Simulated assay, not measured.
Amino acid sequence: MDGATNSEEFAVGCLLSIKTTLGDDFEAQVITFDRHTNILVLQEGSKAGPRRNIRLLKANYIKEFSFLGQAEDPLDIKKCFLDLNTLLAKEDLAIRQAEAEAERIGVGVTSEAQSIFDALSKTLPVRWDKTVIVVMNEVRVSSPYLPESVNGGTPAANERVKKVLEFERKRLQTRGGGQ
């Protein structure tokens, strides 16, 4: 296919059967053709509904195509369906997840402290209180994050945090070559 294809062949709404130089063979409807970049935006298949496959294809990669017919504009605003409630719910969930992840990152702490926090968080509920790790809302682990730095909480909770802390420090030493 040469670069001198006239744009009428790729008019919006055209239904085409396309064979590419890469061996793909498919039917699609033209959503738009950008002559400057020589890129076709295609909607694959003919099934109706809110979900569709979109393909961007450089026209140079079209080996051959045949015109199957003309359909309505696929982007007709009266027929496009956007579920704004679903989109807003997804956005809200993504924001809440990002905020929760941000709260798990200690500010002004060493990477070792963050590693200890991450290890504790795998088995226990934890949060940062400035540079202090608060476990189960009762046990506090202060810098330098050693078993001796653990205080507060019930004796059982205190011992559990100390054990996890000792294990994580050993794991960090073997992994980091005895920092």
Rank of each mutant, 00 (worst) to 15 (best):
L75T: 13
R104V: 00
D73N: 15
A11F: 05
L88Q: 15
I95T: 13
P74Y: 01
G178N: 12
T5K: 04
L75V: 09
R35N: 08
V134A: 06
E166S: 10
G49L: 13
P147R: 04
I18R: 01
A11M: 11
V134E: 10
E72C: 04
G23H: 05
D73M: 08
N151T: 07
A28R: 03
N6M: 10
E168M: 02
L22T: 07
G3N: 11
L120C: 10
A11N: 09
D2C: 00
S111E: 15
I105W: 00
A89E: 14
C14L: 09
G177C: 05
L88A: 14
G153F: 08
N151P: 01
K63N: 11
A94G: 08
D76T: 03
V126I: 10
E101F: 09
N38W: 02
V132A: 11
N85H: 12
C14F: 12
W128G: 08
C80N: 06
E168K: 08
E8R: 14
G152F: 03
G176R: 06
V132S: 06
S143C: 13
R104P: 00
G153W: 05
M1D: 02
I62T: 04
K58L: 12
D129I: 01
D25P: 00
D24W: 08
N158A: 09
S143K: 06
P144L: 12
F81C: 10
K130T: 09
G3M: 06
E91M: 14
L57P: 04
K63T: 03
D76Y: 07
K63H: 07
D24R: 07
V164Q: 07
A119V: 13
L75H: 03
R175Y: 06
E91A: 14
L40F: 01
G13P: 05
K78C: 02
Y61A: 06
L172D: 04
S7F: 06
F167V: 08
E72N: 11
H36R: 07
L93R: 15
H36F: 10
E8A: 15
V150Y: 01
A4V: 05
L75G: 10
K79F: 10
L87C: 12
E101M: 12
F26H: 05
T21A: 01
A28S: 03
R169P: 05
K162L: 06
S142T: 14
D34E: 12
R175E: 11
T32I: 00
T123L: 09
I39Q: 04
L56P: 01
K19H: 03
E64D: 02
R55E: 07
V107R: 15
L87I: 14
I77C: 04
S121C: 12
R160H: 04
M1V: 03
G3Q: 05
K78W: 06
K79W: 02
L42C: 05
G49P: 08
L88W: 13
A157R: 13
S143G: 05
F81T: 15
C80P: 00
E159Y: 05
V132K: 11
T174I: 11
F26K: 04
R160Q: 11
I18Y: 01
F117K: 02
H36K: 08
Q97L: 14
D34A: 10
T123K: 12
S46W: 11
D76V: 08
L15W: 06
